[in-house]
Write a protein that binds this DNA or RNA. Sequence first.
DNA 1: ACCTTATAGTTGCATATGAAACCATCTAGA
DNA 2: TCTAGATGGTTTCATATGCAACTATAAGGT
Lengths: 151, 151
Amino acid sequence: MKQQFELNNFLPFRLNMLAQETSQRLSVIYAERFGLDIPQWRILANLASRGSMTAQEIVVLTLSHKSTISRAVAELAARKLVERTTTDSDKRALALRLTAPGKKLFQELVPLVLAFEKNLIKQLNKTELQGLLTGLAALEQSLRPVKREVK
Amino acid sequence: MKQQFELNNFLPFRLNMLAQETSQRLSVIYAERFGLDIPQWRILANLASRGSMTAQEIVVLTLSHKSTISRAVAELAARKLVERTTTDSDKRALALRLTAPGKKLFQELVPLVLAFEKNLIKQLNKTELQGLLTGLAALEQSLRPVKREVK
DNA sequence: ACCTTATAGTTGCATATGAAACCATCTAGA
DNA sequence: TCTAGATGGTTTCATATGCAACTATAAGGT
């Protein structure tokens, strides 16, 4: 008997479509209004959450390519949204942190992206939302073991 | 008071990371073993699920760019995995369908990708899985209203 | 029938992206 | 402390990708 395969029920495909669609819509906010692309947005968000980080740490956390991060950081630095300072402990690495304008921009951005998220999940009732978050966490856990630099 | 933002809890970011990670691992299967890239794989999967489709239908269903699909189809046709036939009803469009070797290849691929999916969710118990699937469906529903050709 | 506008698909071009080479610095071992 | 290999980051290069122009056909209005 022939093996039946339904793409729309295939989990990786569904995750991809959802991610693509949400990213696409979200990027309208930070692209059009703040001139940021996805890597730049992720860098700002990471620095906002964690204070100071190196590019390498961001690479690992976002599964991005290091050249992507390098270019995005360069652009953010040129726009004076992020500053790079050498540290004594390792002169190869640069400590990245938000500048005052960088923080300001991010603070303007936060309510917008949170509103987007809220809108995204507003159809789900409490149980559904809880189930979704638990399920995602489980998937994340299931993918955790093998950490790489990716791509 | 300062707006707190935690990227790791931000739903679009989590979806992106999960999608990227799963795609990456899945693509190892069809890239290395069958020489397919993501668009090609999606085209095969769609044709396998639905029989005959036009490129345009695949564009809409996969949120891909039409040039991406055009090139991927051209490649699949060159490899004799897919055939293109003109129809009387619309001479612009080409009806795509799997060739015998295309079907054969896909039938070899199916168990592998299903095994991958199974492995991905094996950590989740029944309740978690059900919650995840329901949640994803709700998100899909929530994104449904605005359909476009994307990008 | 004719003309305008829309649509399916392909292709040329500019840009974005990843791989790999590269430089500087760091670490570990002889 | 010298050397070999690893690591952070940048840059060069090849390739992939999206956009826009284009061809062919279709559909709708007059």
